[in-house]
Amino acid sequence: MDKITYNDAFEELKTLILDLEQGEITVDELAAKVKRAALLIELCKKKLTATEEEVNKVIESMEE
């Protein structure tokens, strides 16, 4: 799962949300789609946090 890029995860998440909003997902698929969405959200959060930490390190090294 970590090999997926942030952009790919975000695009898939947007598609899942659109499907949910438009009623494109059956009741049988709902639980699996919600679980997938939760995984994608977690992945995006981790990637954003890692990027923020990396940027902060660069900024700190520039200030030294």
Rank of each mutant, 00 (worst) to 15 (best):
A37T: 02
K46L: 11
D28S: 10
E64Y: 04
D19Q: 10
D28C: 06
E42Q: 13
K57G: 02
V34Y: 00
V55G: 03
I25G: 00
I41S: 11
K46V: 13
M62D: 02
T51Q: 13
A50L: 13
A37E: 03
E64R: 09
E42V: 06
I25V: 12
A50D: 09
L40N: 02
K47W: 01
E42G: 09
N7W: 08
V55T: 08
E54I: 05
D2V: 15
D8G: 04
E12N: 09
C44G: 07
T51P: 05
A37L: 03
A37Y: 00
T51Y: 10
T5Q: 03
L16K: 01
L30S: 11
Y6K: 07
E21I: 02
L13F: 00
E60R: 09
E12L: 07
T51G: 10
E54S: 13
E60H: 02
E52D: 07
A31V: 02
K3P: 01
A37H: 01
Y6A: 07
K47H: 04
S61V: 08
L39H: 09
N56Q: 13
E54M: 10
I4V: 15
K35N: 12
R36Q: 14
T49L: 15
A37V: 03
A9V: 07
L43H: 12
A9N: 05
I41A: 14
I4T: 14
V55C: 04
D8Y: 10
K45L: 13
L43P: 00
K47N: 04
E24W: 10
E12R: 15
I17P: 00
K47A: 06
G23I: 02
I59W: 01
L16N: 06
K47C: 02
K47F: 03
L39M: 13
L43R: 05
N7R: 09
D2N: 15
E63V: 06
E24A: 15
L18V: 05
T49Q: 15
A37D: 02
I17D: 08
E54G: 00
K46C: 07
T51M: 12
I17Q: 15
V58W: 12
Y6H: 09
E60P: 01
E12W: 08
L16Y: 02
Q22T: 08
I17F: 05
T15K: 09
N56D: 07
E53S: 10
V34D: 05
E24C: 12
E60S: 06
C44M: 15
E53P: 01
E63C: 03
D2H: 12
K46A: 12
E64S: 11
D28H: 01
A50Q: 09
N7I: 07
V55K: 10
K14S: 12
A32G: 04
L13P: 00
I17C: 09
L30N: 06
T15V: 09
A32V: 03
Q22N: 13
S61G: 04
E52I: 14
G23C: 00
K35L: 14
R36M: 10
K3I: 10
V34T: 12
D19E: 07
K33A: 14
E42W: 04
M1A: 14
D19L: 04
Y6D: 01
I25E: 00
I41M: 13
L20H: 02
L39T: 08
S61H: 06
M1R: 08
I59H: 01
